[in-house]
């Protein structure tokens, strides 16, 4: 096996990982963080609305549970977007390997 070839593949994988990982955290972390922050202030708002009679206790109970469902939906979105990034990484590596193989055979 040609060592430079392996080195180039590994270098390409490292390069792709360096590009993929920050993009992954940029896409995933802000959404989860802002939802958690919003949840705290949302609970305070609902408590105030319950105190003023705008919402019943049953309403608040339902809304808190709906917040949990919303967190689950958001977590699933994050998991899905992470899979998209993994697919993009795999595609980039595949392109590189095939491109190099074709180049070497043609040479």
């Amino acid at each position: 096996m040609s060592e430079p070839f392996v080195d180039i593949i590994l270098q390409e994988m490292r390069h792709q990982l360096e590009e993929t990982l920050p993009r992954l955290s940029d896409r995933l972390l802000p959404a989860g963080k802002s939802l958690l922050k919003d949840s705290a202030s949302q609970l305070e708002t609902w408590a105030a609305q319950a105190a003023s009679g705008e919402l019943s206790r049953a309403d608040v109970d339902w809304l808190v549970r709906s917040r949990l469902d919303l967190h689950r939906l958001s977590a699933l979105r994050s998991a899905g977007l992470a899979q998209v990034e993994i697919d993009l990484f795999r595609q980039a590596i595949t392109r590189t390997v095939i491109g190099m193989l074709v180049g070497r055979i043609a040479a």
Partner: peptide, 28 residues
């Protein structure tokens, strides 16, 4: 249902739909 509850529940559910739409639009 009360208007206050409808308003608050709608905001939650709208965000839930956005999570579904956001994943679809983020796909390759």
């Amino acid at each position: 249902l009360s208007w206050g509850f409808i308003r608050e529940a709608s905001a939650q559910i709208e965000a839930g739909f956005d999570a579904i739409i956001g994943l679809e639009s983020g796909k390759i």
